[in-house]
Design a protein around this nucleic acid. Structure first.
Lengths: 332, 332
DNA sequence: TTGAAAGCGATACCAT
DNA sequence: ATGGTATCGCTTTCAA
C-alpha cells in the first residue's frame, strides 16, 4: 500500500517556519496589512504559494466573526417559479454580502428533514419552503432564524411570507365572468389532501360574481400534471369554458392538454394561471395569470432574515405579504 | 439610547455554567454521545434550550474537519440551461453530503471576480462557469480545486468539462440538407467577439455536406435576443430556410421572431437549437435540438471536484466531456 | 459518568 | 517592522 503521501493540512505555522518568520507576520502578509517589510512580505507569499497554503475558513471565521451564510431551501429548483424565487433571493443576499447555501428538497419530506438537520449547523439563518409542521421545524432549527415562504397554514412560531392573491383572483374571475363565462373550473394542486388557499380565493371570487364554484381537478405541479388534469376535467365537465389553475406550470400543462383535445385557447377555453413566471410569456398564446412580484418576494424573505439576524425590528405579518395582480395576456 | 441588550454569543461555556457541568459534558449531551447520565443530559439540554444556545459552525468545523462545501458559479440562474446545470450539480453534491454555495455572477466580469475573491475563503472547491483568463482565476483561487465548465479556449491549468457537439451538429446539418435545405443560417451568441466553437462545428458540418457556411447573426442569450436576431438575419438573407442557434434560448426567441414575420415553422423555416433544455418541449412546435446530457454534465463536474479534493486520480481531459446528440422534434 | 487540559488554525492586541 | 500571547468556541484525548 502506498504511504508517505498522508498530506496533512498546510497551516499558517508551516508557512511561518518555511519563511523563517512568526505566524503573525504570515497573517500580515496574507491579509495585506501594513506594518510589514516588503521583502519579508514577498518571502512569506512565496513560501505560502510554494507550500500550497490556504487559510482554514473555520479558523478564520472563528476569530473574525463576520461572514453571514443563509440556507435557501427550495422544493424543486427546476420548477420555474422556484427558480425565480431562488434567483431573487440570491440577488438580495449578494447585495448584503451574504453567502447562500442552496438545498433542493425534491418535494420530499425526508429530504426536507434531512436538509433541516444538516443545515442548522451550517448557516446563520434559513429561508425557504417547508411542508413539515412548525414544531418539527423548530426542533431541528433550534432558535435559528427561519423565514418561511407561502406557508398555507398560518405560521405562528416563524416569520412567514404570506402570498395574498385574493384580490388578484377576484379580478381574474370578474374578468372571465364579464367575458361571458359561466362555468369556470379549477386545476388545484395535488401536493396536500386539502384544497389550497388559492382554491378558496377562487370559490369566494365566483360567489362574489353570483356563480357557484366550478368543478375542480387536482393536478401534479408539472406540465404533465396540468395536461392530464385538464383533460379529465373537461371529460367530466365539457361545459367548462374557462379554467383557473393553482400555478403557471399547471396552466401551461393545461394549454397542452387543450391542444390535444382540440380545444382552441382562448376561443373555446380561457386559461388563467397563478405566479407570473417568465415562462408564461414564452408560450403561444401567452399566458394570462395572476402575477406575483417574485423578485420582491425573494427580497422580502431575505430582508426579514436580516432583521431576525440582527434583532432589529423584524417585520410583522402585515408587512410580510406578497400581493398578486391580474395580468391579462393571450389565453383569455 | 437603549443598552444592556448587547447580546453576546451564547457559548458552550454558558450552557455548562447554567447546567452546573463542564463544557465537555455539554458537548456529550448535545452530540448524543454515550457515557452520560440521562438526567444530566436532560438538564444540559434544557439549559441549552433556555439560553438559545447554538454551536458555532466555525469552532465545530475547526476541530471536526469534516463537512465539504463547494461553490457553484453560474452566469445567470434564470437561463434555463444554467438552471438545469445547477439542479444537476446540487443533486450530485447532495448525494455526497456536500453543501453547495451558489453564486450568480449576472454575466458580468466584475461580479465574477468579486465572487472568486470571496469564494476562496468559503469553500473547499469551485465548480462553474468563468469567462476571465485562467491566470486571473488562478490568482484568486490559490490552489483551490477548480472545475471549469464549457470553457471555449482550452483550459490548461484547470480541469474543464468540455462540451463536444461536433457530431451532434453534423447530424443536425445532415438532416437539414437531406430535407432539402440549401441555405442554412446560424444565430451565434454575442457574449464574446469571436465566433463560438459551436459556429465552427456548424461551418464544418455544412462543408462536409458540400455547402458553404450560411449567414450568421449574433444574438444576445435571451429570448428577445434570438427574436430580433432572427428577424435581422432573414431581412438580410430572405433565402435562408433553416437556422441553427447557439442555444435553445436563442432558438426559442427565433421561434417568436419567425411568428412575427409570418414565417411558419417548420414549413417555411426549420429551427434547430443546442442544449436540450426542458423548455424546448414546452413550446409549440417543440424545439428540435442538439441535446446535451445536462444532468450528466453536472454530475461529472461534481465528481471531478471530488477527485481533485481527495487527490484520488482526477479524470483526464478525455473523460471530461459531455457529448451532444441530435433530438428531432417539431421545428424541423 | 464526569472533568481537566490540549489542541484545531487563524487573528488581535500589546510589547519590543 | 516583528514576535509573544491570549482568544475565538468547540471536540478529543486522558485521568479521575
Amino acid at each position: 500500500m502506498p504511504s508517505g503521501t498522508e498530506s496533512r493540512r498546510v497551516t499558517i505555522h508551516d508557512v511561518a517556519r518555511a519563511a523563517g518568520v512568526s505566524r503573525q507576520t504570515v497573517s500580515r502578509a496574507l491579509n495585506d496589512k501594513g506594518e510589514i517589510d516588503d521583502s519579508t512580505k514577498q518571502r512569506v507569499l512565496d513560501a505560502a504559494l510554494a507550500l500550497g497554503y490556504r487559510p482554514s475558513r473555520f479558523a478564520r471565521g472563528l476569530v473574525r466573526q463576520d461572514t453571514v451564510s443563509v440556507g435557501l431551501v427550495i422544493p424543486d429548483l427546476l420548477n420555474p417559479f422556484f427558480t425565480e424565487v431562488a434567483a431573487a433571493a440570491l440577488e438580495a443576499a449578494r447585495a448584503r454580502g451574504w453567502h447562500v447555501l442552496v438545498y433542493d428538497t425534491a418535494d420530499s419530506a425526508p429530504e426536507e428533514l434531512g436538509t433541516l438537520q444538516v443545515i442548522a449547523s451550517q448557516v446563520d439563518a434559513v429561508v425557504g419552503y417547508f411542508s413539515r409542521p412548525e414544531g418539527e421545524i423548530e426542533q431541528l432549527t433550534r432558535g435559528l432564524p427561519v423565514v418561511l415562504i407561502d406557508r398555507e397554514d398560518d405560521a405562528e412560531r416563524f416569520s412567514s411570507i404570506r402570498i395574498d392573491g385574493r384580490d388578484g383572483v377576484k379580478a381574474a374571475m370578474s374578468h372571465l365572468v364579464e367575458a361571458g363565462h359561466r362555468r369556470i373550473g379549477m386545476l388545484d394542486h395535488a401536493t396536500r389532501a386539502e384544497p389550497s388557499v388559492r382554491h378558496a380565493w377562487f370559490a369566494d371570487a365566483l360567489a362574489a360574481c353570483g356563480l357557484a364554484a366550478g368543478p375542480v381537478c387536482r393536478a401534479d405541479q408539472s406540465v404533465e400534471g396540468g395536461e392530464s388534469a385538464l383533460e379529465s376535467l373537461l371529460a367530466d365537465h365539457p361545459d367548462v369554458t374557462a379554467v383557473f389553475t393553482f400555478n403557471d406550470i399547471i396552466a401551461i400543462g393545461a394549454l397542452h392538454g387543450a391542444r390535444r383535445i382540440a380545444r382552441r385557447v382562448p376561443q373555446d377555453l380561457a386559461v388563467i394561471g397563478f405566479d407570473g413566471v417568465r415562462l408564461g410569456t414564452l408560450v403561444e398564446p401567452q399566458l394570462s395569470t395572476v402575477a406575483l412580484d417574485i423578485r420582491g418576494l425573494g427580497a422580502l424573505a431575505v430582508e426579514q432574515a436580516a432583521r431576525l439576524l440582527t434583532g432589529s425590528g423584524p417585520l410583522g405579518p402585515d408587512d410580510l405579504v406578497a400581493r398578486a395582480e391580474l395580468r391579462l395576456r393571450g389565453t383569455t
